[in-house]
Structure formats: C-alpha cells, structure tokens
Design a protein around this nucleic acid. Structure first.
Lengths: 196, 196
DNA sequence: CCATAATAGGACAACAATGTCCCATTTTGT
DNA sequence: ACAAAATGGGACATTGTTGTCCTATTATGG
C-alpha cells in the first residue's frame, strides 16, 4: 500500500518536489494579495491543472496550511540571513527590513496568519520567530539606539506596516529601489530615540 | 408606477433611511475586515432579514458601491472636521489622524478601494479628497515643518499604514487611548524633518 | 383604530466553487 | 525504446451563495 502524504519531503521524487514548489510559490504570491482566490485561479497561476493541484493538496485547507508553513520558512530564512543578534540593533533592524523586502508575499501572508490566531493558540515555532524580532528591538532599546518610549510590539507592527506600504508602492509603479529606500528611511525615523 | 431607487435620500421614508443606515454601518464594519463576507452575514450583522437586505441592495455589487460611497462620505466628513487648511500643517496632520482614528472601518474600506482602482479610472470626487490630503502634506513641506525628503504620496500612505496598525492593536486588546497615543507619536516622528 | 408601509421568513432556481474519479497523454528515468 | 511516474482535462455530484418571489406578520403614521 501507499499513502499520498508520508513525510512531505523525504519520499517526494525530484519532479514532485519541483511542481510542489511551483504551486506553493504561485499560491503564496496570489493568496497574499487575494485570500479568497479560487483553487482554479491558483492552479492557473501555478501553470498546472486543477486536478494536479488537488492531487497535491486534496482540500483547500491543506493548501492553506502548506502555504502558511512555506511562508513561515521563507520569513525564518530571511530572519536568519539578517543576523538579528549581530552588531548594533539599529543596523540589524535595517538588515531585517532589507531581507524581508524581497519576500513581501511571504511576509504579508505570515502577518495575516499571525492576526487570525490573535492570542489563541501559540505554536512554539512562530512564537520563537516573533520573539526573536522582539528580542532584537528590546536589545536596541537597552542599548539606547531604539526609542524606549514605544513598546517593542508596536515597533514590530510598524515594521510590517512600513514593509507593506513599500510593497504597495511597488505595485503602483514605484521602483523597487526607491520603495526600499523610503522604507528604510522611514523605519530609521520610527525607531530613532527622540532627542527633543 | 414606482421605481425602487429614485434619489437615494429624498424619497426615502424615515424608516427606510434608518434601516438603510443600519445596513451600511454593519456592512462597512464587517466588509472592511472580511471583504468576502456573504450577504447572509451582512444581513445578520445588520439585524435584518436577508430578503430585506436584497430589497435595499438587489445585487451584491449595489451594496458594495453603496458601502464605498458611505465610507467615502465618512472619510470626507472626518477630513472636513480636521480642517486641513488651518494652522500649522503638522498639527493638521495630527488632527487628521485623530479624526480618522474613530472611523477606521471607513478608512480601511476606502483604502482598499483606492488600491483596487490603482491608476485606472479617476473619479473627480475621490481625487479631490486625496488631493486635499496631498495639499496638506505639501503645504507642510513648503513650511519646512514636514520632511521634504519623503514624497507626499509616501507620507500619505504611511498615514494609512499607521492608522491601520493602531486599529489592529485595538483589536488585539490595546486601549483605544494608548493606540491613538502611539499612532500620533509615530506619525510625528515620520513627518518630522530630519535634523541630523 | 385602521390603512399602509416595511419586514421576517421561507421556498426556489441559477450559479460558482469544491472535491472526487477516471482516462488519455506526456514526461521521466533507466 | 520502454515501463513507470506524473500530468492534463474532462465529467460529475455536492455544497454554499446568490438573486427572485411570495405570504404572513409587525410596525408606522394619520
């Protein structure tokens, strides 16, 4: 006998792994902009037949869960590359924005997800991630390089918001470079300790 | 003979005006958080039967259009109350955030709508509104009280973003007062001219 | 109090999305 | 080239939403 879903990664053939990734990439890109997109649209965006999509993710919920994990992994990878523990906290925050900027679809999806499960259940995984961002901000506040009058959670939320605005600007025609520049400049101002 | 939709406001009886408002208020509150909410959910939130909802807005598109107009009116009223042309631009921006804060659902809906019609069609109405916000920011930049290194459109987008974050904080348990305080403090930092 | 306006509630067909199968075709790996 | 794997594409029942209609009930205003 033979079960469709065994271990997600180990038993998948190279071909299946590739199409799986193609689906997930298309899905996170599409669903982050329109969470109500139909399975047919996802399949079309991924360049596969709807039947194939259902073969990989039998039900819509399966796809959504996989997209959530996929996006979380991307965010986690971006966080790791930003090395939040290295150097001045201010620079690390900027690095974090910089890395996140290239994965705005995954960021947005992860953000929506984090809102949906308000403060209900708490996966140790995700918490570890958000906690890592929080630790960075609090480190900066301890250093005195990040505004201590704003709660760390608020600053974190502002990071999502500023990144979102930058991504939206790109969608409306702004250059990626300019959007990133504005994003980072704004973030510097937000976290800067008030000296007046 | 007798047409259902004549002039929206003149021929409506007091009763119809009241229920119409109740529906629109519930709809803007619900749809701003979940644009895919069904007509049944809207009717339930408004406390009316689904048949009544369809009597006022025969098709879903009719409701959506009405909600858009309703939200735009609320935003316009808030803008008017903030008196963008009076006094220092910095204070006016803060007043604008303050007034908008109490109508976040209308703000959010208007924001989504403004994104959907990217730069395609341009209703003179809405443009007049966004133009008014823009004029305020540019006035501040001319005064030297608002950062000139950030484009006015970006600052405007940051206003939406910061207001959104504040509203989201409230949804997650933060006091309205504290959220507003954080919102205004952050906005002051964003628009402040860089002096370093 | 009474005629009229307005609503609630349900039945109904039309429609789109979903999930399940099945089979022909293409691709992969050897 | 050949067998196995993977996909494309369609048919199908199912479900939820939508839009329409009708009737009984409630609320409104003179």
């Amino acid at each position: 006998m033979w079960t469709m879903i065994e271990d997600q990664t180990h038993t998948d053939s190279p071909t299946r792994t590739r199409t799986r990734r193609a689906i997930l990439q298309a899905a996170v890109s599409l669903l982050s902009q329109n969470a109500a997109a139909s399975m047919g649209e996802v399949a079309e965006a991924a360049g596969v037949a709807r039947s194939t999509l259902h073969r990989y993710f039998p039900e819509r919920g399966d796809l959504l869960d996989a997209v959530t994990r996929f996006a979380a992994d991307e965010v986690k990878a971006a966080t790791r590359r930003a090395r939040p523990e290295d150097g001045p906290a201010t620079d690390a925050v900027i690095r974090l924005c910089h890395e996140s900027f290239d994965h705005w679809d995954a960021i947005i999806w992860t953000y929506w997800e984090s809102l949906k499960r308000d403060q209900a259940e708490c996966d140790p995984e995700d918490d570890a991630l958000e906690a890592r961002w929080n630790a960075l901000i609090e480190r900066g506040q301890a250093e005195g390089t990040i505004d201590q009058s704003l709660p760390a959670t608020w600053i974190q939320q502002m990071m999502w918001a500023v990144l979102y605005s930058a991504w939206e600007s790109v969608r409306q025609g702004t250059t990626r470079h300019e959007a990133l520049t504005l994003c980072l400049a704004t973030m510097r101002k937000v976290i800067a300790p008030r000296q007046g």
